[in-house]
Design a protein around this nucleic acid. Structure first.
Lengths: 237, 237
DNA sequence: AGAAATCTGTGATGGAGATCACCAAGTTAG
DNA sequence: CTAACTTGGTGATCTCCATCACAGATTTCT
């Protein structure tokens, strides 16, 4: 069962600033009207698990504010960090559409507000509104692509340094569109970074140190500046 | 551009034995009728590349007969084998829906017949028919899940033996639903298996040898019998 | 059938990185 | 304001497995 929310409020999707970006805000008028009538809006504290891997799927969560960590864990306690969801993302979509259990664990990283829609209610909505189905397909496709590129990175880049270079470049590029320098705020600890690229915490520390010493990157607190992107690109392969 | 087909024929989807299994055969009457009117049916020889990673996406391919290998390769020549597509599968769906380049390479493993549908034609079809959109979302979700589980396996199972145990169990289970013993036909070479689980050919040979010696599996030609599934399950973790 | 190519099996060697064991520096909590 | 965690940094060791190098076995081609 979903955890108890710590608050509740309604927000008009017509006015939502995510209207053009979020998956379920940019729908045609009639669909949007119906979308607003389903599900419930609620708020959660930091550190709450919205759902856990292997548990039966109850529905989807559309993130409005706050960030949510998506990860999964093996029986031995090894963790794979998949991504940090941001406002506009839809969580649990794959499980709902494929009719299976949640495959990941979703945990809030900060106070969060979101809209939760029960499985059957959401599927009925998709059945009735074709444009919403298409949007879901696109959202899934986006998620699929990112999972695919993660798998690709894990499999094809044999060194931990190469994989780390890859994610640094990804973030640098994403944060510096149209800007001169590639700088971004590192939101993860070394431990989380290690879980993301499938290595150990110590290796992340060492490799980052090496990158700094070789003047490929520069780090100030949480701010990371990419100095030599071509060299990183080259080792990311 | 798509390769030239070696043959061409039409097959009535109403009569298709994949009707209930294939993603685009099990549609309602009106949608199915339109589906039949779009795209072209054609045949290919063994060893033909339907499309290659990084190339602009031209459309989707719905596989009717034959098997197709989906893989991708790093600049250094390391290959990741994703899966072997079988009749009923839709290839290139993710690229078409997300409007990006093909992310994998698709190569026929045997003589193959399939239906190809141009990108714009296919998207127009999805836009008009909501049930087809929903099916696409489901197909993508299935692909997404399998990519996810691959990534999970690569990241969370640290030993090559563990990952190999995992895929053997997956195949054994899939092939032995409702049967007493877990037996299946191994369709891949050691090299391909190695590419699938991110290890070297030699390691696959050695680990399979170890599994045989420890009486966990038995191999006769291409037939693999899983003898001690719980032990394998345990090391797959 | 015979040749060419691909696939399988096995030893030896080296290196990347997991793991363990600390310590220092920040952060949170009581 | 300490105490208790969590994070970051670094050395030493040890294990798994990638890689190289062949040799036999099978399949495919002509």
């Amino acid at each position: 069962m979903p955890p108890a929310p710590t608050g509740r409020f309604h927000r008009d999707c017509q006015q939502c600033e995510l209207r053009m970006r979020g998956m379920f805000c940019n729908l045609n008028a009639e669909t949007l009207l119906n979308y607003e009538s389903i599900g419930t809006q609620s708020a959660y504290r930091k550190g709450v698990k919205l759902f856990e891997e292997e548990t039966p799927c109850t529905g989807v969560f559309v993130l409005c504010t706050g960030r949510v960590k998506l990860s999964c864990t093996s029986r031995e306690g090894k963790t794979l960090l998949l991504r940090i969801a941001v406002p506009g993302d839809v969580l649990g979509l794959g499980a709902v559409i494929s009719g299976s259990r949640y495959e990941v664990t979703a945990e809030t990283l900060e106070p969060t507000s979101l809209k939760s829609i029960r499985r059957d209610e959401f599927l009925a909505f998709l059945n009735r509104y074709g444009d919403a189905s298409l949007r879901s397909a696109q959202a899934l496709s986006k998620e699929y692509r990112s999972a695919f590129f993660d798998a690709r990175r894990l499999a094809l880049s044999d060194s931990a340094a190469g994989r780390l270079a890859g994610v640094l470049l990804d973030w640098g590029k994403a944060a510096s569109i149209g800007k001169a320098e590639m700088r971004f705020a590192m939101a993860l600890t070394h431990e989380e970074l290690a879980n993301l690229i499938g290595t150990s915490r110590e290796t992340v520390t060492r490799v980052l140190g090496r990158f700094k010493k070789e003047n490929l990157i520069r780090i100030n607190g949480s701010s990371v500046l990419i100095v030599n992107s071509s060299k990183l690109e080259q080792m990311a392969a």
